[in-house]
Nucleic acid binder design. Structure first.
Lengths: 261, 261
DNA sequence: CGTTTCCTTGACTGCCATCAAAAGTGGTGG
DNA sequence: CCACCACTTTTGATGGCAGTCAAGGAAACG
């Protein structure tokens, strides 16, 4: 199915993600925000009960995305924003030399695609790191709905603002931290997000490769691997491939709070 | 109109660049978006004429900020967003060890403070790099006004989205470029923004120190200085302290487009 | 079961941070 | 006007952290 350049062997490039079928478009299930188990994390977060019901006016479509498939690509027309129902995604930008820069990871309840509003086309790619399910939220509908409700408008604004703040802290990380601090910050961030979803904050399974972590954190995959090993030797973590157990959360926190307020 | 730089043969050039129009203008009367000379760059950008007039309902206050003063600080309550009328600002975050991380520079017509919406308090500091003037736009008023107009709502959304995209590209820079590429990208960005404001794209005066540039680009001030020197030796630039003359814009562009699409 | 992808570890290199010094710039007040 | 001070910038010397190149093993895949 590799419609693209099936390079001989040896090209260590990720381009193979292109094997996605052109949207199988399964039957859209109607789902209501007001009865969604993710409503405290997702779009409705912060809205009062009756306000949430306004969201039920949105005509979502739910869709399954297989591991490795892309949900949208940079340049695609911007029509929807997407909420992760299950699974994990990465956002990435393509660099001119064929490499990719990972700009974020997205877990259940998080929104993707808000960067597309600026130009009317998506500014990044979204790729599933494991089998996943998403809600497509037509932006035009959401905008229309918000024009009737200040608080809903506020929520959308806040979500975008939060994205800006998130990127701020990533800039601090990239601009002023060393390898250990970067990885510590990354693991703590994952830990918190797992906890917020009812999972253990101390033990979890990473869905991304060392190369993807490295791209996100501005370091090479070998350095990521070495830093994991260093943390193990310091008895901060137990690492078995992608399975992480945090042994000393306070120490990890200290390591990275040295730099960030 | 290029109010800048008709260079008198040899004199080490100084402050020729951005001094705003002479007007001491002590009377800060009501200002209307529809008659503002920055309306094509600023908030009204993209709105039709009659839509712009809706913005005239906003009750701005104009305010002068002296060089070195802060407009707001991280943690301050979020009530306004700010549009730069003249002068240059930096946004920055305080790190735990007392250092600062510069997260952006803002020129005439650009908005600041949208990161405050997420938490209801500002997430960064805004400091004037030279004597400046700003419009304070009460966010509540803006939100109320947008609830009556889809296109105005759209504009605010787009502005936030643009901020997200801007930070994306900064992440690429910090995550995958070397010192020369970073500085080239920075200079080209300034160059474009100067051009968009009617100044020369080839010759301008930087308002920030080497340390601030370095913080923004994730490198030390010494490295910034050395990289400027290297560009001079390659005959890409002429540098005299903060006055920059770009000699070979295409080469500079190539140097940085190697990495970014 | 072979092939591909992912991860780890080692050896070496190089870019940039660090430390240090000197010269230039601007502002202040005697 | 000039001395003085704080700040900024440049340049050199040195060292360290992380990148690069390489190889071997483990896991996933078809």
């Amino acid at each position: 199915m590799n419609a693209t350049i099936a390079r001989p062997a040896a090209a260590p490039i990720h381009f193979i993600a292109t094997r996605e079928e052109p949207s199988p478009a399964p039957a859209p299930l109607t789902t209501l925000c007001s009865s969604c188990h993710l409503k405290d994390l997702c779009l409705p977060c912060g809205l009062a009960g009756d306000e949430v019901q306004r969201l039920d006016g949105l005509k979502f479509s739910r869709r399954k995305i297989k591991a490795g498939q892309t949900l949208y690509r940079a340049g695609d027309g911007f029509h929807n924003i997407y909420a992760v129902r299950s699974g994990t995604f990465k956002s990435s930008l393509a660099l001119a030399d064929g490499r990719e820069q990972v700009s974020g990871f997205h877990m259940a309840g998080e929104l993707m695609g808000l960067d597309g509003l600026a130009q009317g086309r998506h500014a990044s790619n979204a790729t599933a790191l494991e089998d996943a399910e998403i809600c497509s939220i037509p932006y035009a509908q959401l905008a229309e709905l918000s024009s009737g409700s200040t608080s809903l408008q506020m929520v959308v604004g806040r979500l975008m603002s939060r994205e800006i703040v998130r990127e701020h802290s990533l800039m601090v990380l990239l601009g002023s931290m060393n390898a250990e601090e970067r990885l510590a910050a990354f693991l703590l961030n994952i830990s918190q997000r797992m906890k917020a979803r009812g999972y253990s904050a101390h033990e979890f399974h990473l869905r991304m490769t060392r190369a993807e972590i490295g791209s996100y954190l501005g370091m090479k995959l070998e350095t990521v691997s070495r830093t994991f090993s260093a943390f193990q030797q310091q008895h901060l973590l137990e690492v078995d491939k992608r399975h992480i157990r945090i042994l000393d959360l306070p120490a990890l926190t200290r390591a990275f709070e040295m730099r960030v307020q």
